[in-house]
Design a binder for these strands. Structure first.
Lengths: 135, 135
DNA sequence: CCTTGACCTTCCAGTGACTGGAACCCCTAT
DNA sequence: ATAGGGGTTCCAGTCACTGGAAGGTCAAGG
């Protein structure tokens, strides 16, 4: 009941099989092998994969996932360490949002200024070329 | 006055020299060469590089920059084409912002819930492990 | 028994947009 | 002659996969 093929665990963890093989390659998980050389995943493997999938979906890098997994396994570590990692990541996210919002601002202004008809004059290109008026 | 070395044009366009060589590699620009084999950049090259740098800073892919440059060069194209490209990109940016904001939301909630002291219990890890309460 | 098809395996190459480094050439000034 | 500060090429690495080729394994059907 708890020995899964890669396809089964992929479905259960909602990750592509390719990605799971990759995670083994880089040492995130170490599934057992059957007599035929096939990978055989247990509950612990599935648990880890789900953990990583969730952390990845929150934007943590694979390396940070490794650290988070290690922290999860080490029941003695201080919650402050986890919090610090998460806060660093939060700062990074904020920075990205800031950058994107700035891009969005500029670009949406330009799009607004562009007639979008069949004539050639285009304030978007003018801005990129540095010949645009601030308007 | 208008034949620049790679270092000079790099400074003028505010791009690393390495990046400029890369842009030549992929055919974005084709600077002339001097007798010694050194690249020799003219005003047009500088102009293009600045154009690309600006477009990149707005988040367009290098391939889109290629298209934008071609559109800029083609004085007959309709501004609607440019606008369409920009609008597609704008949608992409919005989508990214949405994703990041969602991550931010979840993560900041978790960080808030975490004591961040020297004790081991940590709602962040609990959430990743799927054992966390919704709280 | 043989084949078909769905699985599984490994390994290699490519993605995007650079970035770092090695090994080597060129030119000027001391 | 040598030191330095340019320049050149090419190769490898980043990140997190993803696609594909070549081939092994297994259960079911004819």
């Amino acid at each position: 009941m708890h020995a899964m093929s890669i396809k089964q665990v992929a479905e259960a963890a909602n990750l592509p099989a390719k990605t799971i093989r990759y995670y083994e390659d880089i040492g995130l998980i170490t599934p057992a092998r059957g007599d035929n050389g096939y990978r055989s995943f247990g509950e612990t493997d599935l648990h880890k994969l789900r953990f990583v999938a969730r952390a990845r979906s929150l934007g943590f890098s694979v390396d940070e996932c490794r650290t988070l997994l290690a922290m999860y396994e080490d029941t003695d570590r201080a919650s402050a360490d986890v919090k610090a990692l998460a806060e660093t990541h939060l700062t990074r996210i904020d920075e990205k949002i800031r950058e994107l919002t700035e891009m969005r601002q500029t670009l949406s202004h330009l799009v607004h200024c562009c007639a979008g008809d069949d004539r050639p004059g285009c304030p978007i290109l003018d801005d990129l070329a540095g010949t645009g008026r601030a308007d």
